[in-house]
């Protein structure tokens, strides 16, 4: 097994991202990844796992997720039910301890990758509740009086969309990398990964429109890489010619299938107004 991540042919990783990933792997510290939605945070963990040939254990966080759920849960209700039915299983409490994502990763016989995705969704104390477990890579199961210890420290990725939600004590233990929204050049590479055969002129024109759109002040939700990819897929499927993305003379138009890029009604209205104004100025 190689333990250096060099990017994959599915995923465009900038050199600084790769460096941060490899530093985290080498020093066995968690890597906290932040960035706008759609900048490839979730995909990074998947790609690192597949590039290194390691299994990936994913924990997607919701607002109701508790730290304990990543370790284990005691299914008291099933046990109560089984006791009513006279099931023999009921004598062993261990039958009702349900392993969480971290336990599964700790118990795995070989190194693995763990993704704690969108940690900022959880309650504000969630990261603090996991500090000790992630530091030591072990925890105690009170019901069965056993200590679960990682056989191999997993490579840990943590993603977050939000600003400044995480406690300092937690942050100090992590490597941190902020994925900047891709510049044009990087974006071309990303698109190339997804659509190796896309028409060159269509791609150019589409990227131009896309980046202009992102610069429109006051948008509620800027289109992300995912939206660009969806849009390009549609443009290609409908065989839209590149020239249709602009009015003659290079003036902006509302581009075809713009609904794939702007999903918010207010944003569409704002953009249409701006286009109308630009036309009026001529």
């Amino acid at each position: 097994m190689s333990t250096r991540f060099e990017g994959t042919d599915q995923y465009v990783a900038t050199s600084d991202l790769m460096l941060a990933v490899n530093a985290a792997i080498r020093l066995q510290r968690p890597l906290l990844i932040k960035g706008e939605p759609g900048t490839g945070k979730t995909m990074l963990a998947e790609e690192v796992a597949s590039a290194l040939g390691l299994p990936l254990f994913q924990w997607h966080i919701k607002s109701t997720t508790k730290a304990q759920q990543g370790l284990y849960e005691y299914d008291a209700v099933s046990r109560l039910r089984d006791s009513q039915l006279g099931d023999d299983k009921v004598k062993d409490i261990g039958n009702y301890i349900v392993q969480g994502v971290l336990w599964k990763a700790f118990a795995h016989d070989a190194p693995s990758v763990v993704l704690i995705d969108e940690i900022d969704k959880a309650d504000i104390e969630f990261p603090n509740d996991l500090l000790r477990e992630l530091d030591r890579m072990e925890f105690h199961v009170y019901e069965t009086q056993q200590t679960v210890k990682a056989k191999h420290r997993p490579i840990l990725f943590i993603t977050s969309n939000n600003e400044k939600e995480l406690p300092d004590a937690f942050l100090r233990r992590c490597f941190f990398h902020y994925i900047k929204f891709p510049d044009k050049e990087t974006m071309e590479k990303i698109v190339g990964v997804h659509f190796p055969d896309i028409r060159e002129n269509l791609l150019r024109a589409a990227l131009e429109v896309f980046f202009e759109l992102r610069d429109v002040p006051g948008l509620k939700k800027k289109p992300t890489t995912s939206e660009l990819l969806d849009w390009l897929r549609l443009l290609a499927a409908e065989e839209i010619p590149a020239e249709h993305l602009r009015a003659p003379g290079g003036k902006p138009v509302v581009p075809p299938l713009a609904g794939a890029l702007l999903k918010n009604e207010q944003d569409i209205a704002l953009f249409e107004r701006l286009v109308a104004m630009a036309k009026g100025n001529r």
Binding site: S15, D16, L19, A20, A23, A24, L32, K164, L166, L171, R172, C174, F175, F176, H177
Partner: peptide
């Protein structure tokens, strides 16, 4: 890049 990843968390 390394110094930033180690030292800057925001």
């Amino acid at each position: 890049v390394l110094a930033r990843a180690c030292l800057v968390k925001d």
